[in-house]
C-alpha cells in the first residue's frame, strides 16, 4: 500500500463515516486476516441458516423497510448495507416467528405496529379494493365502449359490392401479371 493509500485508509478509519469502531479481536476471527482499512467496509454479522430461510424471505418480501428506501425488508437488508432499520425488522420477524406466530400473524403484527404503509401492497380490504379493481374496471369499461363503437361502426359500414368474390379466378395471365406489378409497386 502506498503512502497516500495508507493516509486515506487512516483518514477513513478516523472519519465519522465509519461503519464500526473496531474493538478487541474476538477469538473466532483469529485465523482471518484483518483489513488494513476496516472502516472502508460496512460491518456485517455472520449469516445464519435462518437468514436464508425461504419463509423468512417471503415474509420480509411483503413488508416495506421503514427507513424510507421504498424497498422491501429482505431487499433492503441485503442491498443497502448502511441501513440499520431493515436488520432490526429482520430480527423482529425472527423473534415473532419464534413466538409461534404464523406468517400472516407476523405481517399483521407489523401492520398493527407501523400501519398499512409497512405492507408492500395495500391489503385487500375496504377502500384498497379500488386500487386492485380500477385497472380491470377500466379494462371492462374500455371493452364495453369499444364493443359498442365497433358494433355501431360495423352496422354503419357500406354494403359490400355485388360483384362475385371469385372474379379474380377468371383473370387472364396478363391481368395477373399486371396485378403482381401493381402490388409490388405498392409494397415498395
Amino acid at each position: 500500500m502506498s503512502h497516500r493509500s495508507l493516509s486515506v485508509a487512516l483518514l477513513l478509519a478516523a472519519s465519522g463515516a465509519m461503519a464500526q469502531t473496531p474493538g478487541p479481536r474476538p477469538p473466532s476471527t483469529d485465523s482471518v486476516g484483518r483489513l488494513a482499512a476496516p472502516g472502508a467496509v460496512q460491518s456485517r454479522e455472520r449469516v445464519t441458516a435462518r437468514d436464508n430461510d425461504l419463509l423468512v424471505k417471503a415474509i420480509e418480501g411483503r413488508m416495506r423497510c421503514t427507513c424510507g428506501c421504498n424497498l422491501d425488508v429482505f431487499t433492503c437488508r441485503t442491498t443497502d448495507f448502511t441501513c440499520t432499520t431493515s436488520p432490526a425488522m429482520h430480527r423482529l420477524v425472527l423473534a415473532r416467528l419464534d413466538s409461534a406466530l404464523t406468517p400472516d400473524q407476523v405481517v399483521a403484527a407489523f401492520e398493527a405496529q407501523y400501519g398499512q404503509a409497512v405492507l408492500m401492497a395495500p391489503p385487500k380490504r375496504g377502500f384498497n379494493w379500488a386500487a386492485y379493481l380500477m385497472p380491470f374496471a377500466g379494462l371492462g369499461a374500455g371493452l364495453v365502449v369499444l364493443g359498442l363503437v365497433m358494433r355501431r361502426w360495423v352496422r354503419a359500414r357500406p354494403k359490400p359490392s355485388p360483384e362475385p368474390a371469385g372474379e379474380a379466378a377468371g383473370a387472364t395471365a396478363q391481368e395477373l401479371e399486371r396485378l403482381r406489378r401493381e402490388l409490388e409497386r405498392i409494397e415498395s
Partner: peptide, 16 residues
C-alpha cells in the same frame, strides 16, 4: 455477487 461487508473488520466476508 454482492460483497455485503466484512465481519468485524476482517477478511471474513458476507456475500449475497
Amino acid at each position: 455477487i454482492v460483497y455485503a461487508g466484512s465481519v468485524q473488520g476482517t477478511e471474513e466476508a458476507v456475500y449475497r
